[in-house]
């Protein structure tokens, strides 16, 4: 078994299992803490608020966006770029198809490259802000930097392997992907799932009050 076969075979299965079980465990662990029923007579629907809260916080308020537009641009560029290149890049679709048998239309190569450019620009801006803003220096911890760097390296090795001509480069990418998957459930990368819980909790509380900030 070659290194690449190992990284794409047993190692990948293990990493993905840790990722999936860990993430489910963590989300379930949060939900399991439960909450007391709210006895105050509601003015509106908590359930509707849950969804509205989730949607509302996708879009910044203009008032604040004026102050932090660079950060917002970086955030959008990174997240949208990463989503597009993760889901619509031809090599990724081929990889998913190998395991699930599912396939969908890939972006043309230039579209995928463009998405990667956005993602890289965004991630670099976000990371650069993290170490050059006193507020960010105050609140950042090792996990923040580790998550940023791991994600960056996964993306970087992915782009270095774009020629798809060398197994070594593909193996490097896959190795980091595995590392990233293992790190994910124990880290703040989990915000990819917990964001919905937090937004929903606030949305539900406000929904009951008949409003939605």
């Amino acid at each position: 078994m070659t290194v690449l076969q190992f990284l794409e075979g047993p190692m990948f299965y293990a990493a993905f299992a840790i990722f999936a079980v860990g993430a489910i465990w963590r989300v379930a662990g949060i939900v399991r803490l439960g909450r007391k029923p709210d006895l105050a007579p509601p003015k509106g629907s908590a359930a509707a608020g849950w969804f509205k809260g989730n949607l509302r916080h996708f879009v910044p308020r203009g008032l604040f966006a004026e102050r932090t537009w660079m950060h917002l641009l970086g955030g959008y560029a990174f997240h949208l770029g990463l989503f597009v290149l993760l889901v619509f890049a031809a090599p990724h679709i081929a990889f998913f198809e190998r395991f699930t048998g599912l396939s969908w239309t890939a972006l043309p190569r230039w579209g995928f490259i463009l998405a990667a450019e956005f993602a890289f620009a965004g991630l670099i801006v976000l990371w650069v802000r993290r170490f050059s803003d006193p507020v960010m220096r105050q609140i950042s911890d090792r996990d923040d930097h580790a998550g940023s760097w791991l994600t960056f390296l996964v993306m970087l090795t992915g782009c270095l392997a774009l020629e798809e001509a060398h197994d070594a480069l593909r193996a490097l990418h896959m190795g980091l992907v595995n590392l990233w998957l293992i790190y994910f459930p124990f880290s703040r990368l989990m915000h990819a799932f917990t964001f919905a819980l937090a937004r929903g909790a606030t949305g539900a509380v406000y929904g009951r009050k008949g409003m939605n900030p």
Binding site: R26, I30, V31, R32, L33, G34, R35, K36, F64, R67, T68, H71, G75, R129, R130, D133, V135, M136, I139, S140, D141, D144, R188, M190, H191, T194, F195, L197, A198, R199, G200, A201, V205
Partner: peptide, 22 residues
């Protein structure tokens, strides 16, 4: 004090620092 709501809040924070601006 820690119920599912508080846990969600503490888990979801990505230290983006936006709140300082508010």
């Amino acid at each position: 004090q820690m119920d599912a709501d508080i846990a969600s809040y503490l888990e979801a924070c990505v230290h983006c620092g936006e709140c300082a601006e508010a």
